[in-house]
Design a protein around this nucleic acid. Structure first.
Length: 940
DNA sequence: GAGTTTGAAACT
DNA sequence: CAGTTTCAAACTC
């Protein structure tokens, strides 16, 4: 593991095993392209892009990426070899390109035929495994290219506009569209379908060649742009088109390099659906949420099962998709190449600036698209004929949400996810997906899996709404999230930037660590990308942030002897598997869901960000930094310390452990086990405030939103979090305690992530409330989920799980439990996006606040939870201060199953709890207590 | 830029 | 499981 063999990947030689190696490759004009090809670089730079597809899902993450055996063994190996040289060949001249093209075409044609036939039939040819793998493989980077391909295919299948192309309008829209989407492959497929092989071939050639040409020339870009434009005019909005175009271009490039044929061929059947969805999504993003969304949702739902399968494969997914397309042998490299190439091509093209229409401009759109895709992927596939088998590629953002999340402003991502989740379970999944996009794809995958069971077929309307929500949110808010996504897809953008100078990777690598750090910090802050500086671990251990985040090292990294590169995918996967075998949660997001974007809650200074409900999975162990420096993982993640933390003298600005514990204690006590006067008082207080009959309902986002600024200090209050505080939730604890398999853990993590996402989302706003809500929410629905988690776990793991489960439970429970959950998401989401949270907060703060929240989207459950949350928050702050943290733990342990309900009830009951804690004291009323709470926290 | 500090990860 | 070592990031000078 530690010393992966550079020789593994054929590419490796070219790619240069170590970081240094990258430079040589880059030198050639293709070097950039190649470098771009490597998903890793891109990913990192862009944030998400590099993320290992599977990484996010802790459990699945390393699942060995499966190559799609089902199709084309041929291309991959050839492609790979070609790829290495392909770039050069491309640069060298059209001749080489033509060769590659022809080869690709051949492969494509054959493949396409099959695919096409399948597609035409509308039956998804892609078998579960193969298809899934493919989709999975695509995850992030692949998403762009693959998405395009898939999209085109889907379009064909869908009979929609695309059909026209099939019918005999190869060139016009269809062809153009295909070209754009899939670049060469799709076109081929379409041609095959339509019987226009020649034209298609030509186009393919043109497209395929383009990438190459693009490198050398701008003409290709122009062509593409032209086609894209046409396509846009015909089919979709510019944004969607542009995205597609980019994707197509990238794909083309990829194909050229690595015989993208396989990838294309594989993708088609399902891809078409996706394409539709994608398109629809894109449209939605722009403002229209239409039919396509429904399809997508259905497809997504249908694919969920597959997804579960695929996720694992995906984990490193980025490569997988391509690999699936490609043959197994060199598939990995080829995949990487393809993905990277696609990205690179896009970037390059953009850098050329000429051709691609608005690639840069489209980046956002793309991001949105990616998000949408992710969401789609996330969406359970309920229906669908087409999608029956279709596996949605996991958006593949391999990056762990943690890294991404951190980087991405929580609010944005969170909002998006929230929106998705709002509608229904299916929606929830979507949310999770969206969230995942923000956080990590893995989470989303896990969520989707978890939700598969639930997989209530999302209503079309709901789905649409979700989609629209997502799109809108993404567009409006989640630029950052989009950016993160872009990182995957639009490495090109970064590359563009970098390309200008040369290879960004090299540049970054050469940069001094400090500079890099600064950049990284900047990037992380803004984008979430991380760069490492590993010297001894070869970036194959968790010491490496990149590796830990599930992303490949890229340009910004200054690591030495890095094996965390696409070229060494196998090694990376193996290493990951090993690590996961030891700790299934090793790659799980460390942070459940931090919301950083919330309006800065400045306590006093205003510097404080609102403490997100998110918490560190394992907690920190700080002893000297007092959790006030980045040494502290909690602090670094902008999340408050929690019970899981073993820190000493915690002064975490985002939330002190003590506060958290107190809040949890409050909750747990409320649960009934711990019947302390304080708890009772709190419960009463909560009760009075919330008045909610529905504790179950997750905390309404509104609360969170509203409270953010103020709550930030409160953030600690775990209760308020979406996540049910582990302590508070006996169920959670039980789960954690209960033995669980690694898989279960993963599942939990994923689910928790989802929940967390949701919760965090809420939390971001009002973590405090969120916690409470989560607890409540979890009580009902969560329990079921928890059962899933059942498994043995070490204490530490259990802790993590519990924490995770808590987070998840909160949101999820809401979702699962009923529409309410969805509503909850929705509400939460809405506030986030709209910033209505402040209003809600106000309302919450005020007695009427609860009502407002309830009025929001939150359905019954939500309302109930929301209110409790409020109360909780108010109480929690007080409670925190009042009760020592250690008590909380005890309470947790003490509290048992009944706690859930108990908590909720307790919370309700606790109206104004007597001033157990000084915080509470300041203001007797719940509202006051809230405000006080915040203030108190600030005081802390 | 070099060196120190810090805490997580890995190892025993 | 606990203690120690290793590691890389964060921080300081």
């Amino acid at each position: 593991m530690d010393s992966p063999e550079p020789s593994k990947s054929p590419i490796s030689s070219s790619a240069a095993a170590s970081t240094s190696s990258s430079s040589p490759v880059q030198e050639s004009p293709f070097s950039n392209y190649i470098s771009s090809l490597s998903p890793i670089k891109h990913d990192k730079a862009p944030l998400v892009t590099q993320a290992f597809v599977g990484l996010n899902s802790p459990p699945l993450v390393f699942t060995s990426p499966r190559i799609n055996t089902r199709r084309r063994p041929q291309s991959s190996s050839v492609e790979v070899s070609e790829n290495g040289e392909g770039d050069k060949s491309k640069t060298d001249g059209p001749g080489s390109l033509e060769r590659s093209v022809t080869v690709l075409q051949q492969g494509l044609i054959t493949d396409i035929k099959e695919d096409d036939t399948k597609n035409s039939v509308s039956v998804q040819p892609s078998s579960s495994s193969g298809c899934v793998d493919e989709y999975l493989a695509d995850p992030v980077e692949a998403d762009c290219a693959n998405s395009a391909c898939t999209i085109s295919l889907k379009l064909k299948q869908s009979n929609n506009v695309l059909q026209s192309s099939v019918n005999g309008l190869p060139d016009s829209k269809n062809l153009n569209f295909d070209d754009k989407n899939d670049v060469g492959r799709e076109v081929d497929s379409t041609q095959l379908l339509s019987g226009l092989s020649e034209k298609g071939l030509e186009r393919k050639l043109t497209f395929d060649v383009k990438p190459l040409k693009i490198d050398n020339e701008e003409h290709a870009g122009q062509r593409i742009s032209d086609e894209c434009r046409k396509f846009e005019a015909d089919m979709f909005d510019l944004s969607s088109q542009e995205k597609e175009c980019k994707n197509l271009d990238s794909q083309k490039v990829v194909e050229d390099h690595g015989n993208g044929c396989d990838g294309f061929l594989h993708l088609p059947p399902e891809s078409l659906q996706r394409v539709q969805a994608y398109e629809g999504f894109a449209e939605n993003v722009e403002g229209d949420l239409d039919v396509p969304i429904h399809n997508m949702t259905h497809d997504l739902e249908a694919s969920e099962h597959q997804r579960g399968m695929s996720r694992r494969c995906l984990q490193f997914g980025e490569t997988q998709p391509e690999t699936t397309a490609n043959c197994n042998s060199s598939s990995n490299l080829a995949n990487d190449m393809v993905t990277s190439t696609s990205l690179a091509t896009t970037s390059e093209i953009e850098g050329l600036g000429s051709s691609h229409v608005d690639l840069s401009a489209t980046s956002r759109k793309r991001q949105l698209v990616n998000l949408s895709q992710l969401a789609i992927n996330m969406i359970p596939q309920c229906h669908v004929e087409n999608s029956s088998l279709t596996v949605y590629k996991p958006s593949g953002v391999g990056l762990h949400l943690n890294s991404i999340v951190n980087a991405i402003p929580m609010g944005q991502g969170g909002t998006v996810s929230m929106n998705l989740a709002v509608d229904s379970l299916g929606i929830q999944e979507i949310k999770s997906a969206s969230i995942a996009s923000c956080q990590s794809m893995e989470n989303m995958q896990s969520q989707s899996d978890a939700f598969e069971k639930v997989s209530a077929a999302p209503q079309d309307g709901i789905l649409e709404a979700k989609v629209s929500m997502i799109a809108g949110s993404a567009a409006c808010e989640s630029l950052h999230t989009v950016e993160s996504i872009e990182c995957h897809t639009t490495l090109s953008t970064k590359k563009k930037l970098s390309s200008e100078d040369g290879d960004s990777n090299e540049v970054f690598n050469h940069q001094s660590p400090k500079k890099k750090r600064q950049k990284l910090s900047n990037s992380t802050d803004g984008e979430g990308c991380k760069r490492c500086n590993c010297k001894k671990t070869k970036c194959l251990k968790l010491y490496c942030d990149c590796f830990a985040a599930g992303i490949y090292c890229d340009g910004p990294c200054s690591c030495q002897g890095c094996f965390n590169r696409p070229e060494y995918e196998d090694t990376v996967l193996e290493t990951r598997q090993q690590i996961e075998s030891r700790n299934p949660l090793a790659f799980a997001p460390k942070i459940v869901q931090p919301f950083t974007d919330f309006p800065v809650n400045s306590r006093e200074d205003g510097n404080w960000k609102t403490p997100s409900s998110a918490r560190h999975k394992r907690g920190c162990n700080c002893k000297r930094s007092k959790c006030l420096k980045k040494y502290c993982e909690c602090y670094q993640a902008n999340v408050g310390c929690s019970i899981g933390c073993r820190c000493e003298g915690c002064k975490n600005v985002y939330g002190k452990k003590e506060d958290y514990c107190l809040t949890e204690e409050m909750v747990s006590r409320g649960g009934g086990e711990i019947s302390e006067s304080t708890v009772a008082a709190k419960k009463d207080f909560l009760h009075s405030e919330l008045c909610d009959p529905h504790y179950l309902t997750p905390p309404t986002p509104s609360f969170q939103c509203s409270d953010h600024g103020k709550n930030a200090p409160i953030s600690r209050l775990p209760s308020s979090r979406c996540l049910p505080s582990p302590e508070s939730d006996p169920t959670i604890l039980s789960y954690a305690k209960s033995p669980r398999t690694s898989d279960s853990n993963d599942m939990l993590l994923e689910t928790s992530k989802e929940k967390l996402d949701v919760g965090s989302y809420c939390e971001g706003i009002n973590y405090n409330n969120a916690d409470v809500l989560a607890d409540e929410c979890h009580h009902t629905p969560l329990l079921n989920h928890s059962s899933i988690f059942t498994g043995s776990s070490s204490s530490s793991k259990a802790r993590e799980l519990t924490s995770l489960s808590q987070f998840r439970l909160g949101p999820r429970s809401g979702c699962i439990s009923s529409g309410g959950s969805l509503h909850w998401h929705r509400s939460s989401f809405m506030p986030m996006s709209t910033l209505d949270g402040t209003k809600k907060l106000q309302g919450l703060n005020s007695d009427g606040g609860l009502d407002d929240i309830l009025e929001d989207d939150t359905p019954e459950l939500l309302k109930g939870t929301s209110t409790p949350i409020k109360s909780v928050k108010a109480s929690s702050p007080n409670g925190k201060r009042v009760s020592p943290p250690h008590n909380l733990h005890q309470l947790r342990s003490s509290s048992s199953g009944p706690l859930r309900s108990g908590r909720k009830f307790i919370l309700k009951a606790v109206p104004s709890f007597p001033p157990l804690t000084p915080c509470i004291d300041s203001k007797g009323s719940s509202n006051q207590s809230r405000s006080n709470f915040q203030e108190n926290s600030s005081n802390d």
